[in-house]
Design a protein around this nucleic acid. Structure first.
Length: 782
DNA sequence: AGAATGGACTTTTTT
DNA sequence: AGTCCATTCT
């Protein structure tokens, strides 16, 4: 594509028209309509693989090419930082380098963090505020709960956090929430909400929700500032609009109110973040908010084969809530979608690994053509093991990312404390790490003293001699105070990376890691070094290159933002993380009841529909080949559990799916009929049945329906599933065995390893016995 | 103060 | 299996 110089002062000339025409090249009719609708509100309803981000990008380029807007008039809000980066690069590719300068592109969170850096002082935040992630807020909440005698066993911290979070997102104040809270959990959350907000405030800290609601507060209390930004951002673009929450919706509305040049892109069928407060209603009601909106549908799919699209369509058709949309593609028919059936999660992983290897060797796919998707992060383990065994390079996205690692968070906490001494969460985190003689008791006294005197913890440290502590404790605290303040004093004169290095060195963290001298501790040591390089790199090239900015941006980074990166590797990630990506070959694994859909989600229609959309998202990541897999038993939470394959497999169009052997797939209903011939109805089966513990038969659910009781007790018939595993002993829970003395019995459970392996067996003659396999000669029968 | 040990409990997705 | 907690040991 030809490059253009940006000529700011010649907008509207013929040359610019030519440039604008070029921006439209390679777009289909619908995409062009969306690009050219430059005035007023626009909603683009776009299916997967329809080039929606591309359309948005070209629209921005078009606005500039046509002279409708200067780069600084444009704002684009994306789902990930990476998406923003790519969009910026694309715009520059299309209309010339440097042409995106001054554009605000980024996620909602990073964009409004930036805004608060500039304007936060108007509502009482200095620009070096700390951003608390869920780890920090959970700690903080746990402390509050302790102080208020709320039992964390009865009311989980994460539950409290998410209740408070949704109240915040709904813009409900602590006072109002106290009034409207119903039920024990909500009432507790209402109790915590006020103190929680105050603690954050005192710490000059913001949580993720604050990054959105504080700007709203700012705009509502300072109309002049709002107007200034309304004037500036004349063109507002929002990608993945179906995943915006109420606060984001409100922000968009405020900013667009003046010019109404708001362009949103989204797909209601891909809304998968309701648990985080995303409101699918935002996209469904866009036309109500902007009655004169231009609505464009992007229905042509450029990504997937006809077969894959047909499968995806058969999934999403099952949902009641959706906007009308007819997806189609010019692509090839493609191959059947393949269902991989496995006996255990190890077996599943092995079969996936073999398939990857096979396609790599026989069909020449490169490793980065593959993505393996799963519902929960815990599932990556067995897949990783299989890939490692097979010598296939891979990378895992999500899970514990670099900036979530303990050693990194520790260092970051030190640095945050330097920048923002009010930051209480960080102070608590590092005050006694590495251990320096400030134990729990001393800390408690310190915080008590601070509270009594109405001081921040940091202020209390400054005057610790008045706190009446033992000399030893006092000295330890003074030393810690000096450690922080002496380095904070150097912050002005020293480059951030050097400062970080000096501080870390003096804390003794590095020595401790080195002395431990294990592979893990050396890895951690390297991570810390890497962090210091990252700080150096950031300060060398960022626009606002302060340590505070670094810390804020780092808090908002995700694994997804990482560059595709080095090397040719298979990608492993959750279905959620796969949003917006595409791969030639995709595996959707773990299609089992209770896992996908998750058992909690299967209860209510709305949640079940979200799971189904998640399946839809996963399936539509695939360009050429799609594999679905499930295992008949799975090792979860320390136990081997049996599993029934997912109801989603029954919902998909059987005409496009084949088993690995090439045969048509059998429907669940055919396989798991009861003796009487009744078909299995998912709604009637106790969900616990699916995840019944095969070992230890005691804790089977008491709330089984009549049908399932009958089914569970009827030994060898079609409903019974038994755990097998390749290479595993013949003796596994569920099999019938024979013993020289006791006769026939059934294995209930296995435990211990190697020599110590013992089986709990129920014998008809003598009842339950626990026998060491080494001594008892058990023979498997049947 | 801090390390070591044992028991209870886990059971989702993430900006 | 891993984590968090309380208790006990050093």
């Amino acid at each position: 594509m030809r490059q253009y110089e940006l000529r700011r002062d010649e907008s509207g000339t013929e040359a610019d028209d030519g440039r604008a025409r070029e921006v439209l090249q390679g777009l289909n009719e619908a995409q062009r309509t969306a690009v050219q609708a430059t005035d007023g509100p626009v909603m683009i309803i776009a299916g997967p693989g329809s080039g929606k981000t591309r359309t948005l990008t070209h629209r921005i380029a078009y606005l500039i090419a046509r002279g409708k807007a200067q780069p600084r008039d444009v704002m684009a809000l994306t789902f990930t930082n990476k998406a923003a980066r790519e969009m910026k690069q694309r715009v520059q590719q299309i209309i010339g380098s440097g042409s995106a300068r001054g554009m605000w592109m980024g996620t909602f969170h990073s964009t409004f963090a930036r805004l608060l850096r500039r304007e936060g002082e108007h509502i009482g935040y200095t620009s070096d505020f700390s951003i608390y992630d869920t780890d920090d807020t959970d700690r903080l909440l746990r402390n509050l709960m302790k102080g208020m005698n709320i039992d964390p066993k009865q009311f989980k911290v994460r539950t409290m956090r998410s209740l408070i979070s949704s109240a915040k997102n709904q813009l409900v104040s602590p006072e109002d929430y106290q009034r409207m809270a119903t039920g024990a959990a909500q009432e507790r959350a209402a109790q915590l909400y006020g103190p929680y907000v105050q603690t954050l405030r005192r710490a000059n800290a913001l949580d993720f929700d604050d990054l959105l609601i504080k700007p709203i507060e700012l705009f509502e209390t300072h109309p002049d500032i709002l107007e200034q930004y309304q004037r500036r951002w004349r063109y507002l673009h929002i990608d993945e609009y179906q995943d915006t929450n109420h606060a984001q919706y409100k922000l968009a509305k405020l900013l667009a109110a003046r010019h109404k040049n708001i362009c949103v892109v989204g797909d209601d069928a891909q809304s998968i973040y309701a648990f985080r407060g995303a409101d699918i209603g935002n996209i469904l009601s866009f036309q109500r908010d902007y009655p004169d909106a231009t609505v464009v549908r992007l229905e042509q799919n450029y990504r997937s084969t006809k077969t894959i699209l047909q499968l995806a369509d058969s999934i999403i058709k099952q949902n009641e809530d959706q906007l009308e949309k007819e997806l189609w593609t010019d692509n090839h028919e493609g191959e059947y979608v393949v269902l991989i059936e496995a006996l255990s999660e190890r077996d599943e992983a092995k079969k996936i690994e073999q398939t990857v290897r096979d396609l790599h060797v026989r069909e020449g796919y490169s490793y980065d053509d593959f993505a393996i998707l799963y519902r929960t992060n815990a599932q990556s383990r067995s897949l990783e093991e299989a890939l490692r065994r097979g010598g296939i390079p891979y990378r895992v996205i999500g899970g514990v990312s670099f900036y979530q690692r303990k050693e990194i968070k520790d260092v970051l906490a030190y640095l945050r404390l330097l920048v923002n001494p009010a930051d209480q969460a960080s102070l608590r985190r590092v005050i006694n790490y590495p251990t320096r003689g400030i134990g729990a008791k001393t800390q408690e006294r310190l915080f008590q003293y601070a509270r009594r005197e109405g001081l921040s913890a940091w202020q209390a440290i400054q005057q610790i001699d008045e706190a009446g502590l033992s000399t030893r404790a006092q000295n330890a605290i003074e030393r810690f105070g000096f450690l922080i303040s002496s380095h904070a004093a150097k912050a002005e004169s020293m480059p951030a990376d050097e400062l970080a290095r000096a501080l870390i060195k003096e804390t003794g963290m590095l020595d401790e890691l080195r002395n431990e001298n294990t592979r893990e501790s050396l890895g951690r040591w390297e991570n810390v070094q890497e962090l210091i390089s990252a700080i150096a790199e950031f300060t060398a090239q960022a626009e606002e290159a302060t340590l505070a900015t670094f810390l804020q941006e780092v808090a908002l980074l995700t694994d997804l933002d990482e560059d595709e990166g080095q090397g040719n590797r298979v990608t492993l990630m959750t279905l959620h993380a796969s949003k917006g990506l595409e791969f030639p070959v995709v595996f959707v694994s773990g299609l089992e009841e209770g896992l996908f859909p998750l058992s909690r989600a299967a209860q209510e229609r709305e949640q079940l529909e979200e799971e189904r959309r998640l399946f839809y998202v996963g399936a539509t990541r695939a360009e050429q080949k799609l594999f679905l897999s499930y295992a008949r038993s799975r090792f979860l939470y320390g136990k081997q559990e049996s599993a029934v394959r997912s109801r989603f497999l029954d919902e998909i169009d059987p005409a496009v799916v084949r088993t690995k052997a090439g045969g048509p797939i059998k429907r669940q209903k055919d396989r798991f009929t009861l003796d009487e011939g009744d078909a299995v109805d998912y709604d009637e089966v106790d969900p616990h049945y699916y995840r019944r513990n095969l070992r230890g038969s005691k804790n089977t659910s008491s709330k089984r329906t009549r049908k399932t009781t009958r089914r569970a007790s009827n030994g060898s018939s079609s409903g019974r599933r038994v755990v097998y595993d390749e290479g595993a002993a013949e003796i596994v829970p569920g099999v019938r065995v024979e013993h020289d003395h006791f006769g026939e019995g059934k294995v209930q459970a296995l435990d211990g390893e190697g020599e110590q392996m013992a089986a709990t067996v129920f014998f008809q003659s003598v009842g339950q016995k626990k026998l060491k396999l080494k001594y008892a000669k058990l023979r498997r029968i049947g």
